[in-house]
Write a protein that binds this DNA or RNA. Sequence first.
DNA 1: GCGCGGTTTGCAACCGGTTGCAAAAACACC
DNA 2: GGTGTTTTTGCAACCGGTTGCAAACCGCGC
Lengths: 334, 334
Amino acid sequence: MPVTLKEVAARAGVSRSAVSRTFTEGASVSPKTRAKVEKAAHELGYLPNALASSLTTGRTKLIGLISNNFHNPVFLEVFDRFTRGLQNRGLRPLLVNLSEDWSPDASLGMLRRYSVDAVIVASSTLPADFAHGFRAADIPVVHAFGRFSERPIVDVVGIDNVACGRMAAQTLLARGYRRIAFLGGPERATSTQDRLMGFLDGLVGVSDLTVSHSFAADYSFEAGRAEMLRLLPAGPAEAYFCGDDILSIGALSALRDRGYLVPRDVGLLGLNDMEMAGWANIALTTIRQPIPEIVDAAVEMTLDVLDAPDRAPESRLFPCAIVERGTLRGVRAS
Amino acid sequence: MPVTLKEVAARAGVSRSAVSRTFTEGASVSPKTRAKVEKAAHELGYLPNALASSLTTGRTKLIGLISNNFHNPVFLEVFDRFTRGLQNRGLRPLLVNLSEDWSPDASLGMLRRYSVDAVIVASSTLPADFAHGFRAADIPVVHAFGRFSERPIVDVVGIDNVACGRMAAQTLLARGYRRIAFLGGPERATSTQDRLMGFLDGLVGVSDLTVSHSFAADYSFEAGRAEMLRLLPAGPAEAYFCGDDILSIGALSALRDRGYLVPRDVGLLGLNDMEMAGWANIALTTIRQPIPEIVDAAVEMTLDVLDAPDRAPESRLFPCAIVERGTLRGVRAS
DNA sequence: GCGCGGTTTGCAACCGGTTGCAAAAACACC
DNA sequence: GGTGTTTTTGCAACCGGTTGCAAACCGCGC
């Protein structure tokens, strides 16, 4: 039903190749034929079929955008930025929602069938071998919010979660908290493991500490709230480092429900600095993860890998920083 | 580089047609050849190329999912449900983010080039003629959260915004509020217009009312907060009907900042019942829009329109209901 | 007018599949 | 075993483009 190249060729009185060439960058067409073709194309409302051309060029410009974080509001910011970044560079995001009813294998198969040029994984909670299938199928992978590695198997861009954990420990210590805890995301997530490791590492050698940790079922408000409600009957710690802002906000809600004032009774430190963390009725003190930079870098790396599919995978880390708001007490002289 | 049908045919010792037929539903292949083909395909790791087959079948199973609401957290729920609904039915969402740097025309062109089978528009803030281009290009459109019409030009699924406005008016009246206001979304949005219309309609004939209205720049926390901050110096109304939960939450933050207690000093009524509205520190009284039902219906309608592209466009509306929480005072005897 | 070099053009094959059609194979029945 | 019917199969053309190659064209200098 749509207009095809053949029809344009007929109307312009030229060969099909001529039409094809007018629409491909850097092909040899005389100004005269180009004009004829463009006129005919315009009159017929012709647009080249990207899928048909992908058959011969081997490029679809489709990028699989895979995530399993559809309950953490920060990912709306992430998707916003990814979709804009990709489409502004001529790439098309094919969105994949990894959920109970949609396994990694199913996604892999589907993305192979659709010949995506590359895949961006936006998640820190996926099994370590998730990317292997794509590599095996020769589909480049860029892992945003993934785990740093000296010899990464795929491109990774994110933050140094261990360093963040250490920073959290120092932040709490500097404020004189001594009974402290880590309220992490899902235990299997590499981000959780690394943040905990850094956190504990940052506390090594400090005396008179009581340290504990526990994990929320996933990165969501409900999970953070539920975990804090579970912890509270035994009495709260003085301060919690939460593995994600959304967990902090859930925990905050639980604390308020049970009559604890933040930061008077309990301190909370988040991680991400999502938009919501700055809302006046939340005002979360948190460690900022530079999401715009991470997403932009992921898009850049995707473009790079399309240019040079065989270049060695790279890890790019961005620094994090404390954002002071209202859920921790002030720094005190030790 | 990937395995093709031809290679499978060679290895299985059959014709290319035979291979094609084993992978197409309802084609005639003997169990014996099917077995041979499946064996060969499995050994080679063959997966049919969906894009190549789309050339002849005329179906890509790609669905454009278009939105411009990447700052309203409720849309994360919407995307979650859309992506799951589509992928569970064998359709692939090609996500389009309509923003300043990506015009409706650009989206139309891109989606035509990629031969999407249909388009789902998830927004209530798009110009009325947005869908026309798709109709002209023979691409079916399903408009979720769109405006009801007796003779719709495209499929529409959503709520009766006028009725919601009326419901809001009655809700506020029943609680004895008499100085009331509508704090709407962007003025150009049909949803805003209809909610205001219904709101005013619901107040007709009631005496001793002071009614006003104003509009936030878009559906976002910041816009709601900014608009309320702008209004407050002149003194607040007794209660506000906000055009969206996210505006309510922004307004709530502004009110608290300025020392107003909700609902003691000012009442707030939202619309949507997004997940966040139920969070303990927000506890927004709101009108629930049945988002899961709307999204599921939109997916169903998409499937329907693929089956029968020429059937007349349809409007489906879902009922809304008040969800009582903590931002309006109780009902009083009049 | 001719020959030269560089552009531009069309032909035809190809990308990875599908499908109408007629021939071949399988089956049923006598 | 022969006949008629149904099922299965391969051929070849097609879907909407791209591209290597050789022929046609162009402008230029002589």
